Amino acid sequence: MTDNFLEPQSLGVPCPRCERDLQLKKGRFGLYVGCSGYPDCDYMTAADFDPGTDAACPACQQGKLVQKTSRFGNSFYACDQYPKCKFSVNLPPVQEQCPKCQFPLLLKKKTSAGERWICADDSCDYKSSIK
């Protein structure tokens, strides 16, 4: 009996550090993507890695908001310029300007009634109609 799902599977994507092939691997904490050149190259990332969104960071205007996972397993979106910029939000960002306060970022909030956009600025109480 063979366990093919335990053997590293090539993804056909070059490693950003050493240009060797990236592989889908299984570790004791689940699936991850790692370099085939291990231990010479120790590059790895989560198997469900999301490279980011198209939303620019409203705090520093230099970085992009990328999806990250907290130590408790919750997803959040933070600026990729961390630790220089510590802006983060808990809901998926949308690159739209708030019609009420002109803040450059809205958040996508899902409710039982449907989906709506809310302003990312804490001092603004803008909410769009349910879509």
Results as ranks from 00 to 15, higher is better:
Lys64Gly: 02
Ala47Glu: 10
Cys35Thr: 02
Ala46Lys: 14
Glu115Phe: 08
Cys101Pro: 13
Lys64Ser: 05
Phe5Trp: 13
Asp40Gln: 02
Phe49Leu: 06
Leu105Arg: 09
Gly12Ser: 00
Lys110Ser: 06
Met1Phe: 14
Pro92Ile: 01
Ala47Asn: 07
Ser10Leu: 01
Cys85Ile: 06
Asn4Lys: 13
Pro104Gly: 07
Gly34Pro: 04
Leu24Cys: 10
Arg17Leu: 01
Ser128Lys: 05
Cys57Val: 06
Asp40Leu: 01
Asp122His: 10
Phe72Arg: 15
Lys110Gln: 11
Gln67Tyr: 02
Asp121Phe: 11
Tyr43Ala: 05
Gln61Tyr: 06
Gly27Leu: 13
Tyr38Asp: 04
Gly63Trp: 08
Gln95Phe: 08
Phe103Asp: 07
Val89Ile: 09
Val66Gln: 08
Ala55Asn: 05
Gly34Asp: 06
Val66Pro: 03
Lys68Pro: 00
Gly37Gln: 00
Cys60Thr: 05
Glu19Thr: 01
Asn74Met: 15
Asp40Ala: 00
Pro93Met: 05
Ser123Phe: 02
Leu11Trp: 07
Leu106Glu: 01
Val13Arg: 10
Lys110Cys: 01
Arg116Ala: 09
Ala59Cys: 08
Val33Leu: 03
Gly30Met: 11
Leu31His: 14
Asp122Tyr: 12
Pro104Thr: 09
Ser129Met: 09
Gln102Pro: 06
Leu106Val: 04
Leu11Lys: 03
Thr2Val: 14
Asp80Leu: 09
Arg20Ser: 06
Ile118Thr: 15
Phe29Pro: 12
Pro39Tyr: 01
Glu96Arg: 15
Cys79Gln: 13
Asn74Lys: 15
Gln9Tyr: 00
